[in-house]
């Protein structure tokens, strides 16, 4: 990638409900993420992770509060300008309309194009090639998306996001549906990108291993924000996920590892 820098992300008093008077899905949320940090967003299903992410990539307009990237309110800027700074890798499955991998990655240049037409400049080509290289997709660039495996598709979507040259990258469950090797590869890539990153993750141990900070939310409210070892305490995780969580140390690597059990297993209730 060319010269990219990371952005700071400031979330102030951010809340959201679908309509006036409807149930609030995200209650006032505050946090600040320094440039270049990786934030893991964790919480049980329906906690509001996707809602928060949608607010961060400017799909939902906040009911209250602001999202600022490098101090600029996302909704004070044009969508195209925001798209030059913020990119997202989502769980949406692209329909197969016979676009090739190269063409999909090239879509990442869309917000940087001036005026009309789809012609690609030489700088655009370099950036697209870089993104394909980084995700090890060069051999696949003429293949149709429909012919790829789930892991390959995910890499295509990450490459497309990188071609946007974002300074803030948002990922929604990037390891979903991936086998272990591809999970590790995606996380390794995230770890090493010189960007500010926000990613939702199901696997708390993966989150603890990859993220600088973790935001734990439950029922639309922030339960904790900070370094993983502090936020993902036995008590907080047990409460948020309605399980019994235990922190153990793996004997070989001496790394902390959470294990989980159902609460009423073996007890009478």
């Amino acid at each position: 990638m060319g010269v990219v820098s990371a952005a700071t992300l400031t979330v102030q008093d951010l809340s959201w409900s679908p309509r006036r008077g409807a149930k609030t899905l995200l209650h006032a949320t505050n946090f600040e993420l320094e440039a270049g940090r990786v934030l893991g967003l964790v919480g049980p299903n329906g906690a509001g992770k996707t809602t928060l992410l949608r607010l961060l990539y400017r799909f939902h307009r906040p009911t209250t509060g602001t999202v600022r990237v490098d101090g600029e309110d996302l909704w004070a800027l044009h969508a195209r300008v925001v798209a030059q700074t913020v990119a997202a890798v989502l769980q949406e499955q692209p329909s197969d309309f016979a676009l090739t991998v190269g063409e999909i990655v090239a879509l990442g240049r869309t917000p940087h194009r001036r005026g009309f037409g789809g012609n690609t400049g030489s700088r655009d080509k370099d950036i697209i090639n870089d993104a394909l290289d980084r995700l090890d997709l060069h051999g696949l660039s003429d293949r149709h998306l429909g012919t790829l495996s789930g892991g390959e598709r995910q890499r295509v979507m990450v490459a497309r996001a990188l071609a946007q040259e974002p300074r803030l990258l948002i990922l929604d469950e990037p390891t979903n549906h991936l086998d272990i090797r591809h999970q590790l590869e995606v996380l390794d890539l995230i770890r090493n990108l010189p960007l500010t990153i926000v990613t939702s993750l199901h696997d708390l141990n993966l989150a603890a291993g990859v993220c600088d900070d973790v935001l734990l939310i439950q029922a639309g409210r922030t339960v904790g924000f900070g370094p993983p070892e502090r936020v993902l305490s036995e008590a907080a995780v047990s409460d948020a996920f309605q399980v019994i969580a235990q922190r153990e140390q793996l004997s070989h690597s001496q790394v902390d590892h959470l294990t989980f059990h159902l609460q009423n297993k073996g007890t009478t209730s």
Partner: peptide
């Protein structure tokens, strides 16, 4: 024809297209 890129972007999904700056 002027909107060809936008039409391409729409095929990858509404939300993804919106993160590319398309209303």
């Amino acid at each position: 024809m002027m909107k060809a890129t936008g039409l391409n972007a729409m095929t990858i999904g509404d939300e993804s297209a919106s993160t590319l700056g398309i209303p």
